[in-house]
């Protein structure tokens, strides 16, 4: 997998997790590292980059326990980007599966 592709996939994962509900960093990091081998710590710089690209926004919300949590949400352009990445991903996996004979082919 080349770096550009990987970058897209990680972005896709994070954006997809934010599709249905806003989440805070810890939640994103621990959910992501359950299925993907990635250090929790690298999720935060990724979120920061997505935020500076305007794909996600963050806000603080009080929590019942402890200090306020920093939640991340998809912006309008984040939603568009998510759809693009999703289309790319589906097209990519579909064509590769056609060749390698995957179940989804």
């Amino acid at each position: 997998m080349n770096v550009q592709f990987k970058k897209g996939v990680l972005d896709l994962c994070v954006l997809a997790m934010l599709k249905d509900s806003d989440r805070y960093g810890y939640e994103l990091a621990s959910t992501l590292s359950e299925t993907i081998k990635i250090s929790d710590g690298t999720v935060y710089p990724l979120l920061r980059k997505l935020a500076s690209d305007g794909l996600v926004a963050s806000y603080l919300q009080e929590s019942q326990s402890g200090p306020p949590r920093k939640y991340y949400s998809l912006t309008a352009s984040g939603k568009i980007r998510l759809q693009e990445l999703l289309d790319d991903w589906n097209a990519f996996t579909a064509s590769v599966n056609k060749i390698v004979g995957g179940r989804n082919a």
């Binding site: 990680l10 299925t35 999720v43 710089p45």
Partner: peptide, 17 residues
């Protein structure tokens, strides 16, 4: 390593479990 990602445009590497 974490700081590297803040300081550069590098992309975190990962493997699918």
């Amino acid at each position: 390593e974490v700081a590297q990602y803040y300081l550069s445009d590098e992309v975190p590497q990962f493997e699918v479990k």
